[in-house]
Amino acid sequence: MSGSTAHGADHWESLTATLLITKSDLNPDDLTQRLGTPPDFSRSADADAGARFRGGVGCWALRTAGDDVPGALGALLPRVAPLIGELAALRAEGHRVQINVAGGIDRGRRLTVPGEILARVAGLGLPLSFTTESAAGNGTEEFLDSLARPART
């Protein structure tokens, strides 16, 4: 993963902000028509049933990038705001809708989220998630898997 941050070498890198919509029977073309804008990423529910990310579930996403959280979300939220009525309808139909901020943590371990940004996303009524990306995650994943495993008796 490459790229630097505008706010210090110890911060998450290569930040992206995503409006992410998922559902088991999601049809990307239908969603594009309803939302009136093409996705930056989509996957039909049956495209990759064995996918590591929500396998067997369809995805539709708008995505932006930025040097920090205000930058990444500042580019995304104006695209999301006009869709908020339709997003509410999709949620009522069982779609999972969220705003996700993702970044690389191999070289920086901090991420600052200003209170105004939290309020702005909350004002849309959407959950805000933060996802870490790591190219050196094997040891960590084994460690986390060991935590998730039931204790042997």
């Binding site: 943590i105 933060f130 996802t131 986390l144």
Partner: peptide, 22 residues
């Protein structure tokens, strides 16, 4: 502690409460 794909999800009510702290 995190790895690749570790997610923290904050619901709007909690986000608003944090924001109210300024």
């Amino acid at each position: 502690f995190v790895g690749n794909g570790s997610v923290l999800e904050i619901m709007p009510q909690t986000a608003l409460r944090i924001a109210s702290l300024g």
